[in-house]
Amino acid sequence: MAVPILKQGDYLIATIQSAMTDSEAEQLRDDLMERIGRYRSRGIIVDITALDVMDSFAARSLRNIAHMTLLRGADTVVVGMQPEVAFAMVQLGLTFEDVHTALDLEEGLAFLDARTGR
């Protein structure tokens, strides 16, 4: 099942489901890159509220999305990480240093607004 992507103004909002497979993660990356060009989006929000496991592959996928977005002149913010997932990630040794994070969708939108100067 593909990750649904919603266009809202200048932003794209991708909502990840709990059981995201590796191929779905790669699909998401390609879809986002295609749409960012098509809509000339200025920011991407990846909502992972429902995601219950973030392993090294998923983390790398999200990081790639963030880096690629940056190269296309837009910002990415990952929102909604659950406490247990955050705990497991740091235990695993993943810190997401160069990826912006925010508590939830609302905070993510506020972050992008501030970044894009609105």
């Binding site: 929102v79 990480m81 705990f87 508590l103």
Partner: peptide
């Protein structure tokens, strides 16, 4: 340090 990292992952 992990606490700091994990909090940041949640956006704090």
């Amino acid at each position: 340090v992990q606490t700091v990292d994990a909090s940041r992952l949640m956006g704090a």
